[in-house]
Amino acid sequence: MKLLILGLAAAILSQAAPTGVSTRAACATKSQRKAWHTLTRDEKLAYLNAEKCLMSLPAELGFEGPRTRFDEFQKLHVFATSTVHFVGAFLPWHRYLIHTHEHVLKTECNYTGTHPYWDEPLDAGNFTHSILLDPETGFGGDGAGPNNCIQNGPFKHYVNAIGPGQSITDHCIDRQINDCTSAMAAQTNVDQCMAMQNFSTMWPCLEGAPHGGGHGGIGGEMLNLWSSPGDPLFYLHHAYLDKLWWQWQAMDLPLRLQDITGSNQPVSFGPFPGTNGSFPGFPGNGSIPGFPGNGTFPPGGPGNGSCGMFPGGPFPPVGTGPPRTNLVKRDGDPGNVTTLGHVLTMFGMMPNVTVADVMDVQGGLLCYEYI
């Protein structure tokens, strides 16, 4: 019955909003998303308790593997991984994912706050001592032991059923914090992305160092391209990336509400991705714009730019994604280029929408601001 309702909602939504058209619809009362660093103790505990609630609710969508609603979020990311990374839909899809996560926390776990974000430049190069890793009012600290399980905090006993990668196995939430790699989240790297004049260059820049710094700096589950939402820090990291995208869009509205492009299929989907730590297909001979050294990051780090984590790049091999076929039917695009009509799916967690529907965070479907 729930899937039927979701399907009907999707149909209504598709009729209500013209495909491929982004408009500034009325946004009644904007909610305010705040940095974790600015939240009160009570606000932090309310969010952490809501996430724990999600971990206690039974799975509903019939996916193989998940036992809880939290697991289902991780599973839908596994489903989407090969179609939402290193492609034009990277930022729009994750924007809708964070909206979906917030919606479920509110509607199923009685959460009355808004989705927080991690202001990562404040901790760049020093994730180890971030207040987000506080054992009482944060997400717990580093991993330890043979499996690098987190040792304290509200999620230390959670048994994750999804991952690593595409596998279905019971395991702890693990971390391997690397302060060297976390330096990629530095404000200077963010500023390089904010200076880009077009989405075609801004998006790969943002998916490069700022994105990689958050995942690589935490390590463990967060470093797995497929199953990274198994660490609750994932959601604050991607809320932060969404903040950066909106900040960039707001520099030139309404023009940037229409600015979307990119391939629908990653050029490579091997060792995260390509070789030598590079991002093939991105500007500059596979390098992240603004970074020397053929895409290695961060420049000058040990291990060929990898901060000593993995040879040739900070990310481990993640396998090969499923082949992408029938792009037009799947994506709502006329070809292999991301357009405003591109369909974003949460696999039944929420109705499908288009990129046009999420381009404006104050456009009707979405109604929030970052402070």
Rank of each mutant, 00 (worst) to 15 (best):
W248E: 01
Q249E: 11
A250D: 15
L253G: 05
L255D: 12
L255S: 09
R256K: 02
L257F: 09
L257V: 07
Q258C: 05
Q258I: 06
I260F: 00
T261H: 02
T261I: 00
G262F: 01
S263I: 02
S263K: 10
S263R: 09
N264L: 15
Q265S: 08
Q265A: 10
P266Q: 02
P266W: 02
S268C: 14
S268A: 10
G270T: 15
P271T: 12
P271Y: 07
G274K: 03
G274T: 09
N276E: 11
N276A: 10
G277S: 12
G277W: 04
G277K: 07
G277C: 15
S278Q: 14
S278V: 03
S278M: 07
F279S: 09
P280C: 11
P280A: 08
G281L: 01
F282H: 15
P283G: 01
G284Y: 04
N285H: 10
N285G: 14
S287D: 15
S287Q: 10
I288L: 09
G290I: 01
G290M: 02
G290Y: 00
F291S: 03
P292V: 06
G293L: 07
G293K: 03
N294K: 04
G295V: 11
G295S: 02
T296G: 14
T296F: 02
T296R: 15
P298M: 11
P299H: 05
G300Y: 13
G300K: 05
G300P: 04
G301L: 08
P302S: 13
G303R: 05
N304E: 11
G305C: 07
C307K: 01
C307E: 08
M309R: 13
F310I: 10
P311F: 10
G313N: 13
G313P: 14
F315G: 03
F315M: 09
P316H: 11
P317L: 08
P317A: 12
P317V: 11
P317T: 11
V318G: 12
V318T: 15
G319I: 05
T320F: 02
T320Q: 05
P322H: 00
P322I: 01
T325K: 04
T325W: 00
T325P: 02
T325Q: 05
T325S: 09
N326I: 03
V328W: 01
K329Q: 13
K329P: 12
K329F: 08
R330E: 13
D331K: 04
P334R: 15
P334F: 12
G335L: 11
G335W: 04
N336W: 07
V337D: 15
T338A: 10
T338D: 03
T338Q: 10
T338M: 14
T339Y: 02
T339G: 03
L340E: 02
L340T: 13
H342F: 01
H342A: 09
L344V: 08
M346Y: 07
F347Q: 09
G348L: 09
G348T: 05
M350C: 12
M350L: 12
P351G: 13
P351Y: 10
N352R: 10
N352F: 06
N352Q: 14
V353I: 15
A356C: 02
D357P: 11
V358N: 06
